[in-house]
Design a protein around this nucleic acid. Structure first.
Lengths: 206, 206
DNA sequence: GCATGATACTCAAGAAAGTGAGTAGTCAGA
DNA sequence: TCTGACTACTCACTTTCTTGAGTATCATGC
């Protein structure tokens, strides 16, 4: 039941439409939760029914009309109650880690490709988060902003996201290097064993 | 559908019972996926029905009998196919981050308590992962183990888990410090504004 | 000698999350 | 003028995850 609280937390920063919310929760920027548009529209409907958010119709001429939502007093109270609950530990759940766990039994090339792709993805998010942080703190330096800035919540979660993606990138890079080195070794070994100084086709499966 | 592949990956390290698997996937050690016992038993049943794992009954006298599972050739092929698919990016999903996102609107004390608790949790996992890594590499040093060790998959995922928990701990510590400093400031400001050199009760909500 | 906790599982129900498809207008570029 | 991308949403369905309860035996400690 944390999606609803994530929505409430996101709406604290100002009125948003379901569509804007969806963009924030979907690719990239979701540095504290992730959800798809359909989930968000559904959750907004529920939240409005329960009076935790309120929406107002905004008529637009060049585009479809939209509804902007904001958090009500009840909504804020619900968030407050949520914050007081014990946070359940957040567990890792990552396809790529599952693959690496099985590394010793799988095709190394495929894994290295996966690691490289994830590294690029992480790099892109690092850029994105860096830009977001700069934007949030404006012309102030970080220490100053953290001391006196008005809204540091999003800044802190963004810092977490940045650190996460940096670790991700570094780990991907290092793991790929290790796998490459081992692949190279096993090729060498195979060549030495069968016919020294021959050019046997390079196999990636050790 | 990654749970099934996580189970397969876990079983590569040797035969395990559902119960042993459950312990590995539950608290702590699950450094590449997390799941509850019920899910695992259900998944094992499905996997066995599809021939991706095979179980054998082990009769015990001092304890209930158990079934040990291992991955079949079909299971390994399924893992191989899974590895070749594009890994979907793993998104953050963390109660605590949701709370911090809303930090500027919530009770600071409650948040700091949450951060402290998570920090302790992270510290415990760091210890745990450190021990696991030592155990896996035995008497070799890390570089040597990563070059020539026989099974590095679990080692690499454990390294990822360790890095994650370190970042977690550091971020919790730093965020809590920042919030404490701001709380202190706002108290000061409040005291200065109402009655300088009076002992007004300290409020934590800025 | 009785509670507690570990081993070893199973069943049922419900909440949450993910997937796929569809509507409908606007705008920019080929 | 047609294609594709963007804004702005909705409906229906399936899979996955979580919660709670229950069974049975054995070992350990108070």
């Amino acid at each position: 039941m944390a999606l609803r609280h994530a929505v409430l937390a996101a709406l604290l920063d100002g009125e948003l439409s379901g569509y804007q919310l969806a963009k924030a929760f979907d690719l990239g920027v979701a540095n504290f939760w992730h959800a798809l548009p359909q989930q968000l529209y559904a959750e907004l409907t529920r939240l409005e029914k329960e009076g935790l958010v309120a929406g107002r119709e905004v008529v637009q001429d060049a585009r479809p009309n939209k509804r902007l939502f904001h958090v009500t007093a009840d909504g804020l109270a619900a968030l407050e109650r949520f914050a007081a609950e014990a946070a359940k530990p957040s567990f890792v759940r990552d396809d790529l880690l599952v693959k690496v766990q099985a590394a010793d039994h799988l095709d190394t090339d495929v894994l290295i490709a996966g690691l490289a792709e994830r590294e690029r993805f992480a790099e892109a998010k690092i850029e994105l988060f860096g830009g977001l942080l700069r934007q949030m703190r404006g012309d102030r330096d970080e220490a100053e902003f953290l001391r006196h800035g008005e809204r540091i919540g999003p800044y802190l979660t963004c810092l977490r996201g940045l650190a996460f993606e940096r670790e991700n990138r570094d780990w991907c890079r290092r793991s790929a290097e290790i796998l490459r080195a081992r692949r190279h070794q096993s090729r060498q070994a195979a060549e030495d064993a069968t016919s020294p100084s021959s050019s046997s086709p390079a196999r990636s499966r050790p």
